[in-house]
Amino acid sequence: MSAAAPAPRVRHADRAALGVLAGLVLAALLAPWLAPHGPTDQLDIVGLASQPPSARFWLGTDAVSRDVLSRVLHGARVSLAVGAFGTLVALVLGAGIGLVAGWSGGRTDALLMGLVDTGLAVPRVLLVLAVVAVTGGLGTGGLVLLLGATGWFGIARLVRGQVRSLRTRAFVEAARTMGAPVPWIVRHHLLPHLATPLLVAATLGMGQMMLLEAGVSFLGVGVRPPAASWGNMIADGRATLATAPWVSLFPGLAIVGSVLALTVISEGMRRRLDPRETA
């Protein structure tokens, strides 16, 4: 009946999750050497299109005779990069705006939090769809920026809350009365306290980012062809879900696996860093 009971399992799961994630990152880095074919190579558009998994094509081929295994491996690069960099953008924006709002208070705070509320009031998928429409189509870099720029609202709210409470703490008050410059306070007092919740939020957010990339690909505004991302592979395989399920199954499993790994890791971090749970 004690909270410590699941602890050994957690460590086990954490290690497995880290293993999965490391494996995927490794696969992404080594894709050109691991993949039996190029990700965009069309092997034989008449003879080898939509082949089921076999000894020759471990994960089958897609509608234009590209090797699914090679695309899943290369897709790992794009998907993980979109997830990681998108999260980074969201983190920087969210932390920056949250800091400013929380520290300044008053009208600035009200205005920035109003912006956050506005952002949260529109479904994110629609927001991404609308911005893609506005820009007339985006490259992968643009997509990363966009996913980040629509993903910082929650983080900003989190940071602002933390900063509001930190501001009144004795050590911060002391630093202020001693005339320490604001950047110094931020670097030495605020960021160390923010690091933990931000890291947890970022790990979780990266998984969400990857799911969102898949979602917008489904609506036709994801990573552009012929580049492979797990999201656009699932979307491409949608039309043949019943006849050639392997085309979307394997990238789908890759997404589930990595999001799951990220969730487990963020849980583990939270548990380790949250004093209440370890008590």
Binding site: M1, A3, A5, P6, R9, A13, G207, L211, A214, G215, F218, G231, I234, S248, G252, I255, V256, G257, V259, L260, T263, V264, E267
Partner: peptide, 24 residues
């Protein structure tokens, strides 16, 4: 039933469900 086998299985299950793209 915290800590039981069922708890662990369900935890794994709920985490997996959250990792599946909703449209998929």
């Amino acid at each position: 039933h915290a800590g039981s086998r069922g708890d662990r299985v369900l935890s794994a299950f709920t985490m997996s469900v959250q990792a599946v793209p909703v449209f998929w």
